[in-house]
């Protein structure tokens, strides 16, 4: 009896603590949503910026009239989607090779993989731009997608995961005459769902918010990604239409929340923890 009470009190404390933490985490998003529904004058008013207003559609219409917001959303989806799929697949492929084969140069190659995680994006900006210019890829999806098709982080994560995969299963697949790629595709990859989901979410998230490279890689209005479009609407010294920007932010938030809810169960099922156990 007493113990049950104490446990209930304990749970209450857990809820209170988590509740406070969650509130702090989501408040800015609440503010974003609220601001997107207010008129321009009300957003900055300390007295009225607490409750949603009825101006969302108007802000959205304003945004639609000045910027190709749906096109930007589509661009963001295409770029993030393709880079995510390719990053997951190519990282798994390379990670598998690093984990399950011994070959000449493996150590040095893997060191190169790790090195790529340490490079600040600002460093490669101008040379990358020059490459894209020479290939005439500025303002194309190629420029947005190709440099991000695989990441060192992805290969690292996948390699750590693959190291735990039982060798016996691979051997027996080989006995059955499966090709190496076939083994990877049919035997190994399906067991890596959680790791793939985790890497997928992180990649998608990073790409969704990626900013600096798209800024340089595209300048055509039709090729803008969502965060890029929003950043262009904010320039100190100019009139900034905050309500419209916030409406755009709200739109940009939806796909990523859906994605996270969808893959969440994989994401927390041990995908990352395996990565350092190898």
């Amino acid at each position: 009896m007493g113990k049950g009470l104490r446990q209930d009190a304990g749970m209450l404390l857990v809820y209170v603590l988590l509740g406070i933490g969650a509130l702090i985490s989501i408040y800015p998003f609440y503010w974003m949503f609220t601001a997107s529904t207010l008129t321009e004058g009300d957003i900055f008013k300390t007295s009225s910026a607490w409750l949603p207003g009825g101006n969302f559609l108007e802000n959205l219409r304003g945004l639609e009239s000045s910027m190709p917001v749906w096109r930007a959303l589509l661009n963001s989806l295409i770029v993030s989607g393709v880079t995510t799929i390719s990053t997951v697949f190519l990282s798994a492929l390379a990670g598998y090779a690093f984990a399950k084969f011994s070959f000449k140069g493996r150590e040095i190659l893997f060191f190169l993989v790790l090195m790529t995680m340490m490079i600040p994006a600002q460093v490669t900006l101008v040379p990358l731009f020059i490459i894209m210019m020479k290939l005439e890829w500025i303002n194309t999806y190629y420029a947005l997608i190709l440099p991000n098709m695989v990441t060192g982080f992805g290969v690292f994560l996948m390699r750590q995961q693959m190291m735990g995969f039982p060798d016996e299963l691979i051997e027996s697949a080989r006995m059955d005459g499966s090709s190496e790629f076939g083994t990877f595709l049919r035997i190994v990859l399906p067991t890596m769902k959680p790791a793939c989901a985790a890497l997928g979410i992180v990649t998608f998230m990073n790409q969704w918010g990626n900013f600096l490279w798209p800024l340089v890689a595209v300048n055509d209005k039709e090729m803008l990604t969502l965060p890029l479009m929003l950043s262009m609407m904010v320039a100190p010294g100019n009139v900034v239409k905050y309500g419209e920007v916030m409406a755009g932010s709200v739109i940009g938030l939806v796909p990523i929340i859906i994605l996270f809810l969808f893959f969440r169960k994989y994401f927390v099922s041990g995908a990352f923890s395996g990565s350092v156990k190898g």
Binding site: F129, I130, V216, K221, M229, A235
Partner: peptide
């Protein structure tokens, strides 16, 4: 072409 006012889009093409 919409750009930001930090010249991030202007400088690379001029440099290149």
């Amino acid at each position: 072409q919409r750009v930001t006012n930090n010249y991030e889009q202007i400088i690379p093409p001029l440099t290149a």
